[in-house]
């Protein structure tokens, strides 16, 4: 019954595949005809304004939503065919401010999926220690509650919780959006280093172009529920597409801090 969570060897074929997927809510299109691939080991950043359909795209991956047309496939199987509980436990999910359970200690928050997967207690404890170190948190924090942590610490716990059962896929929704700029930059660097070692299939949602350029292998720009372009990170800034230009100019219009 309980299939292993890791599919690390499933390198043939994309980890995540949107095949002409659309999502409509009460007739209103939130996502239209999205076709997109993410391979194992790749980081795709979904870039776009608020309401462009980025979060809807993420929710289609872990079956918080089902496409109203087309298909979304995870490890080659349509999300509609997956047992939603199995599917979700094989996808790490990080949201803004961590989305931690306020009544669980840091340790219990991180151990959430291993515990409901009935890992032996010793292995769970070992894993929590390992993850705290991995995300750069002191082991003393394990017994604290989320309300007793700083925003940056909460976000690190959120990342550790998503990684707990070593899922092959990681999705992050504005994960670092609530952090101050210094903590944010630290988290971005650490996350990039972590991903280089882990080689997961990552979809990272943001509206921050600089964050996208820093983290992505590929950037997919979305606007009003449609995919505008899907380009390797090196080609993105040079694109002649009108919407890409608008996005790049919005960021390059800011004063160059190094010259002030």
């Amino acid at each position: 019954m309980t299939a292993p969570l890791s599919h690390g060897s499933a390198t043939e074929g994309p980890a995540i595949e949107f095949d002409h997927a659309s999502f409509r809510l009460n007739g209103r299109p939130l996502l239209e005809d999205l076709t997109l691939l993410v391979k194992q080991g790749e980081t795709l950043v979904l870039l776009g304004r608020s309401g462009s359909g980025k979060t809807t795209t993420l929710k289609l991956i872990n079956r918080l939503l089902l496409p109203t047309a087309g298909e979304v496939r995870v490890n080659g199987r349509a999300t509609a065919q997956w047992d939603p509980i199995r599917l979700r436990r094989s996808i790490g999910y990080v949201i803004q401010d961590g989305g931690l359970f306020p009544h669980f200690t840091v340790e219990r928050n991180i151990a959430l999926v291993p515990r409901i997967e009935n890992w032996p207690r010793a292995r769970v404890e070992e894993r929590v220690r390992e993850l705290l170190a991995k995300v750069g948190l002191n082991a003393d924090l394990a017994s604290r509650y989320p309300s007793q942590l700083s925003g940056g610490q909460r976000q690190r716990v959120g990342v550790a919780r998503a990684l707990a059962a070593d899922p092959p896929i990681l999705i992050l929704d504005e994960a670092f959006g609530a952090l101050d700029p210094i903590t944010r930059s630290e988290m971005q660097k650490e996350f990039r280093a972590l991903q280089r070692r882990m080689q997961k299939a990552v979809i990272f949602v943001t509206h921050d172009l600089r964050e996208a350029l820093f983290l992505a292998d590929r950037i997919a720009l979305m606007e009003q529920g449609r995919l505008v372009v899907d380009l390797p990170v090196g080609e993105f800034s040079r694109s002649e597409d009108r919407l890409v230009r608008a996005y790049v100019e919005a960021f390059s219009g800011l004063p160059d801090i190094s010259r002030v």
Binding site: I85, R86, L87, I91, Y93, F101, L112, I116
Partner: peptide, 14 residues
């Protein structure tokens, strides 16, 4: 908090 409930659901809680 709906964000907490949704996080739980997304983590694969029944």
């Amino acid at each position: 908090d709906p964000a907490v409930v949704e996080a739980g659901r997304a983590m694969g809680l029944t």
